[in-house]
Design a protein around this nucleic acid. Structure first.
Lengths: 118, 118
DNA sequence: TCATGTGTGGACTGTATACTACACGATATA
DNA sequence: TATATCGTGTAGTATACAGTCCACACATGA
């Protein structure tokens, strides 16, 4: 298992906690509407990463990028999946093509599309 | 529910069956290593679409595009998800940017990347 | 010392997923 | 008229997912 999620979450939460007691497991769990013991287990990788909805809430609370946190949890957002599934052939070809392309090249595409050069 | 999957599958299989008895529910199910009653239910949308593995086997048997069939089943392949999860921020930005871009423009990107213009 | 807050342990739960097993009646074939 | 093949109906199942619930021990501050 990607034992990453819990470690990452714990590190991030503990950092925030030093400056703000609202980031104790208990208080954070309460805002996420889950049980503290559950969150504790997730942080210690005793429990698989939460659902997409909970991870998104978590990202919002921790000020993290939702897509990154979802990826750490082994997920891709339903939103992105929906975009792909609308034109599966097209996006499958694209993603496979870009798999090995370096970051800066992909970013250039993103920017050019955004600037309307297409 | 996307009542599409079953209809599509049934139509495709029946077409093939007219020319080749190997495409009866029973014989096809046998090659897929599932029960015929299960496949029958899937075709009549009485049962949710199968797992990714079974859909991929189905696509191979029917000569269909795996990504398209997966999409009809409401899924995105683990392979593509893995590519996204390796660079979630990058691919999330890209996919959202391309969401509304017309097919031909996306295809142009695919071709240009393939031709090494990046 | 007592209330409050902290993290954690153990057991259990509801729902979904992805099927199987077996049987039935209809149809076609020999 | 056996035999085989067809599609389908009913019931049941194993596993994973995404948590809950309650209890415990420790620490801190009033």
């Amino acid at each position: 298992m990607s034992t990453q999620f819990g470690d990452y979450l714990r590190a991030r939460r503990e950092t925030l906690q030093t400056a703000d007691p609202r980031f104790s497991i208990r208080q954070l769990a309460s805002r996420l509407q889950v049980q503290p013991s559950y969150l504790s287990k997730v942080e210690r990788n005793e429990q698989a990463p939460p659902s997409e909805a909970t991870i998104l809430a978590l990202a919002a609370e921790l000020g993290e990028d939702p897509d990154v946190l979802l990826a750490l949890g082994g997920k891709v957002s339903a939103e992105l999946r929906a975009v792909i599934m609308r034109r599966p052939k097209l996006f499958a070809a694209l993603i496979r093509e870009l798999e090995t392309l370096p970051d800066h090249a992909v970013l250039r595409i993103v920017r050019e599309v955004r600037d309307g050069n297409w």
